Amino acid sequence: MLTYNFAQRIVDRMMKVIPYNVNIMDSKGIIIASGDSLRVGKVHKGAFEAIERGILIEVYKSSGGAKPGVNMPIYYNNEIMGVIGISGDPKVVGSFAELVKITAELLISQEYTFKEKRMEERLKDEFLHQWAYLNQEYDAVFKERAKALNINLNIERVAVIVKSIDSVKDPNFDKLRIKISKDEYLIRLNPQICVLFIKFNKNLDKLIEGISSLIDNVYIGIGFKQEIVGLSVNQAFKSIELGERLKPNQYIYNYKDFVLIHRIYEGGDKKEILEPILKLIEGGTGSDLINTLDKYINLNGEINLVAEALHIHRNSLNYRLQKIQDITGKNTKNYLDLFQLFSAYTIYKLDCNEGK
């Protein structure tokens, strides 16, 4: 359906090219745009005839709202959208008829194609947004929507979350589109966060490197491969949430590095898990033993490296480790005991940094 504003733009454009008044009538024969604004809204008898017969109509005498000139039906997708007319002696203005008709139809086609593309993009964005948060089996309606948008739900994908650290500056996530290929998608969830749906077999390390090179000051979270990609989105979000609290000096977080502690943190009895570290806080001296345990865990129990990081002698370190064992009953040289200390300390850190 032709609108007044669009039709008037066509008229104005035509009248810059030809020295005659141009009118556009809708499918009911009413003038909706004209170089003569006084004619807008009036019925045009010549337009009726052009619509009914589907051919160029020449008008030689003023009659039924029509003035001398030529009137041609304009088509889109083989349907008459309206009529375009040129006022003047038909023998003179007739030479412009085909040019004006073709130009009008081309402009209409471009406008409708643009609107259809924008509508498709909007529908696709809405679908991707829902896809990102859908954590259950896809129903028949959702699958049909995917099919209509040419989105293959059967391809194995992982979710990559990119979160801007700067809450003021626009991160311009659209730059990342050059890093995705066919059957991969990017959707902005809010001004500071976007999610990429990436094919599982893609070189993720290379992709992450590419993201980092294009956008500064972002956290990047990576989920597992999932048939329900919304689950991978949740994991990517969780990796950033845990990573910010446990490894604040890093910027790239993979859920595979946090899956165990996540399950312990949210699925276990936290009071029981925290017991060794609470004993250490109560029975230790200041923060020395907590700091010692932190360095011991993060430096993989390498005595020389731990002592160097703490700026103490090896003997002093061994004394502290023995002190930790005396207070907690956990031997740092026993893998099972160390795992319990690691779990307790990690949960403790998460609780201490919650909300930061």
Rank of each mutant, 00 (worst) to 15 (best):
R9W: 09
R13C: 04
I18W: 02
Y20P: 02
D26V: 02
S27A: 15
K28Y: 09
S37N: 12
S37E: 15
L38Q: 14
L38F: 12
R39P: 01
G41E: 10
G46N: 04
F48R: 07
G54S: 06
G54H: 11
I57Y: 05
K61G: 02
K61D: 13
S62Y: 11
S63T: 07
S63P: 01
V70F: 02
I74V: 06
N77K: 15
I84E: 02
K91I: 03
G94K: 05
G94F: 07
A97M: 08
A97W: 00
E98H: 13
L99G: 09
L99K: 10
V100R: 02
I102P: 04
A104K: 01
E105P: 07
L106I: 12
Y112Q: 06
T113H: 10
K115M: 14
E116W: 01
M119Y: 14
E121Y: 10
E126M: 14
H129Q: 11
A132F: 05
A132K: 01
A132M: 04
E137A: 10
Y138D: 06
D139F: 04
F142G: 02
K147P: 06
K147V: 06
A148T: 12
A148L: 12
L149D: 14
N150D: 15
N150V: 10
L153I: 08
N154M: 09
V162S: 00
K163V: 00
S164H: 04
D166W: 11
D170S: 14
P171K: 03
F173C: 04
L176K: 06
R177A: 11
R177D: 13
K179T: 02
D183K: 09
Y185A: 07
L186G: 02
L186R: 03
L186E: 09
L189V: 06
N190R: 10
C194K: 01
V195C: 01
F197N: 07
I198L: 11
I198K: 00
K199W: 03
N201M: 01
K202M: 06
N203A: 09
L207W: 04
S212D: 10
S213W: 08
D216R: 12
V218M: 04
Y219Q: 02
I220H: 03
G223M: 00
K225S: 12
K225W: 04
Q226K: 15
I228F: 02
G230T: 08
L231H: 09
S232M: 10
N234H: 07
Q235E: 15
E241Q: 12
L242Y: 15
R245K: 15
K256S: 14
G268R: 08
L274M: 05
I277C: 00
K279S: 05
G284T: 04
G286I: 07
S287Y: 08
I290P: 05
I290Y: 12
N291T: 09
D294K: 13
I297S: 03
N298T: 10
N298C: 00
N304L: 10
L305A: 13
N315I: 09
L317I: 08
I324S: 04
D326Q: 13
I327E: 08
T328G: 08
G329V: 05
Y335K: 15
F339G: 05
S343G: 05
I347A: 05
C352Y: 14
E354F: 07
